[in-house]
């Protein structure tokens, strides 16, 4: 229950709850106390060489994302009926699938739900419930990958001091969510779908490019030159929808404070770094703690962590997939 509440609070843009030292379990306090002078220069140097680029999870994720999107293309162009449709709605070997956010937009705008859509939403809900909610973002959304590449360019430009990253208020995304829901409900049009880069890129891959890609290009340029991962971090309602599903999902990343150096490499690579605030020294609530559901389960932190303090786990099954 606590996990759900804390997750939703963070999804809405609130900072992670902090507890006082007195509330921390004894063991955690002991761990923190024992690490006071642990991080020496030698340790830091060792970390410098630890690159997350093409780490195990990134490799798996990129391959999965590309295969998922290629399945749509192959299914259409070679008429093998595996995944027909686009990311917004499809049929996977005959079963209706409907993206939860697109379906929600249609329901709000059309105010009428046909059985096929109920079936499609249920299957997708169950799928991402099993796989981790926002797993959709980093493992399936085609815009995510483009945005990730733009992010590398952005980070390089920042490192070269050519540009400065600008941030937005963390609650912006929740405001967008509300606005787009209200717009669909009141205007009767699925307003968000017109500008959703997820749908636009997915359709462009499958049915061929169109003018709409210019909007996606503009978004990417904005993310390169103005603000890191703007769309995913501050705008996209799809992320919130799947984060809500993820509160109930057993697939989570777990933090173990014991060996953590608190050097913060994980927060540097994270799409939603507020979920990793618990890795800051003194911030954890427990020795072992699960990352909240705003996490996209991308595995970048798992890849980069030099001390193996962050790991995927399936609740009930223990640690999985080393």
């Amino acid at each position: 229950m606590n996990y759900i509440k804390e997750s939703l609070s963070q999804v809405l843009g609130n900072p992670p709850t902090r507890i006082s030292k007195d509330e921390q379990p004894e063991e955690l306090k002991r761990i923190y106390a024992g690490k006071k002078d642990k991080l020496k220069k030698a340790d830091l140097d060792a970390l410098e060489h630890h690159s997350h680029f093409m780490g195990k999870w990134m490799r798996r994720r990129w391959i999965t994302l590309i295969i998922v999107n290629l399945l749509f293309v192959i299914s259409y162009h070679f008429d093998v009926q595996l995944v027909e449709g686009a990311m917004t709605a499809s049929r996977v070997v005959g079963f209706h699938f409907a993206d939860l956010n697109s379906a929600l937009q249609v329901m709000l705008a059309y105010k009428h739900v046909v059985l096929n859509l109920v079936i499609g939403t249920t299957t997708v809900f169950v799928l991402w419930l099993l796989l981790g909610g926002r797993t959709f973002c980093s493992w399936a959304c085609p815009y995510h990958l483009l945005s990730e590449w733009a992010e590398y360019l952005h980070l390089w430009l920042v490192k070269k001091k050519i540009i400065k990253n600008r941030t937005f208020h963390h609650k912006t995304r929740a405001v967008f969510y509300l606005i787009f829901a209200l717009l669909a409900l009141l205007s009767g049009y699925t307003v968000f779908e017109t500008i959703s880069p997820t749908g636009i890129v997915s359709r462009a891959i499958i049915y061929g490019p169109g003018v709409a890609l210019l909007w996606v290009g503009f978004l990417l340029l904005f993310e390169v030159f103005v603000s890191r991962r703007t769309w995913c971090r501050y705008v996209c309602p799809i992320g919130i929808t799947y984060a809500a599903v993820g509160t109930l999902s057993p697939v989570r990343v777990e933090y173990n404070a014991e060996a953590c150096h608190h050097e913060g490499d994980c927060r540097k690579v994270c799409l939603v770094p507020h979920v990793l605030d618990l890795t800051i020294r003194g911030r954890a609530h427990d020795v072992k703690q699960e990352i909240t559901s705003d996490c996209t389960r991308c595995g970048m932190c798992v890849d980069i962590c030099p001390t193996n303090s962050l790991n995927f786990k399936v609740k009930g099954l223990g640690k999985f997939l080393e």
Binding site: S75, Y76, E84, G85, A86, T88, A89, S90, R91, A98, D99, S102, A103, V106, A109, Y110, H112, L117, A184, G188, Y189, T190, E193, T194, G199, I200, R203, I206, Y207, G210, V211, A212, L214, W215
Partner: peptide, 27 residues
């Protein structure tokens, strides 16, 4: 308006058409 509201923009109709008559709208 209702048609635009109800359509989920997936193009499944495009895919099944044997004469490829159906096109998707652009921005």
């Amino acid at each position: 308006e209702k048609f635009l509201a109800a359509c989920i923009k997936c193009g499944q109709c495009v895919q099944v058409c044997p004469v490829e008559a159906i096109k998707l709208g652009d921005l």
